[in-house]
Simulated assay, not measured.
Amino acid sequence: MSKNKGARIIITLECPCRNLNSEYKDKRKKGIFRYTTTKNRKNTPRRLELMKFCPNCNEHQQFKEIK
């Protein structure tokens, strides 16, 4: 049997550019870009925010945790 992972949960991070439709003239492609990662529920009870690369924006953005 496998061990329980404890307080670690899988979360999804989403780029805030998902609602900007007018700025896609020079950008790569339309759509929503998301990352998946894990976090410790006990150490970080609030929503996680990380700087990640968004291929839709072609730059680094502040990705926020979604439910």
Rank of each mutant, 00 (worst) to 15 (best):
1 M>A: 03
1 M>P: 03
1 M>H: 06
1 M>W: 00
1 M>Y: 01
3 K>R: 04
3 K>H: 07
4 N>R: 08
4 N>Q: 06
5 K>M: 08
5 K>G: 13
6 G>S: 06
6 G>P: 07
6 G>Q: 06
6 G>N: 10
7 A>G: 07
7 A>T: 13
7 A>F: 14
8 R>M: 11
8 R>F: 12
9 I>R: 10
9 I>P: 08
10 I>M: 06
11 I>K: 02
11 I>A: 00
11 I>T: 06
11 I>G: 01
12 T>N: 05
12 T>G: 01
12 T>E: 05
14 E>T: 05
14 E>D: 08
15 C>G: 05
16 P>S: 09
16 P>V: 00
17 C>E: 07
17 C>V: 03
17 C>I: 01
17 C>N: 10
19 N>R: 05
20 L>W: 02
21 N>A: 10
21 N>M: 06
21 N>L: 13
22 S>E: 12
22 S>N: 07
24 Y>L: 15
24 Y>I: 12
24 Y>W: 09
25 K>S: 12
26 D>G: 14
26 D>N: 14
27 K>E: 04
28 R>S: 13
28 R>G: 13
28 R>E: 09
29 K>N: 00
29 K>Y: 14
30 K>T: 14
30 K>I: 11
31 G>T: 02
32 I>Q: 11
33 F>H: 13
33 F>D: 01
33 F>C: 12
34 R>T: 13
34 R>Q: 15
34 R>D: 00
34 R>H: 00
34 R>E: 04
35 Y>Q: 02
36 T>S: 13
37 T>S: 11
38 T>Y: 09
38 T>C: 13
39 K>C: 05
40 N>D: 15
41 R>G: 04
42 K>H: 14
42 K>N: 15
42 K>L: 15
43 N>Y: 14
43 N>D: 14
43 N>W: 07
44 T>C: 15
44 T>Q: 15
47 R>W: 02
48 L>C: 01
48 L>Q: 07
48 L>P: 00
48 L>Y: 01
51 M>G: 03
51 M>T: 12
52 K>P: 01
53 F>D: 03
53 F>S: 10
54 C>G: 01
54 C>L: 07
55 P>H: 09
56 N>L: 13
56 N>Y: 14
56 N>P: 02
57 C>K: 04
58 N>G: 03
58 N>D: 15
59 E>S: 15
59 E>R: 14
59 E>V: 12
59 E>G: 13
60 H>P: 02
60 H>V: 13
60 H>E: 10
61 Q>G: 01
62 Q>R: 12
64 K>T: 03
64 K>G: 07
64 K>V: 00
65 E>Q: 15
67 K>R: 09
67 K>I: 00
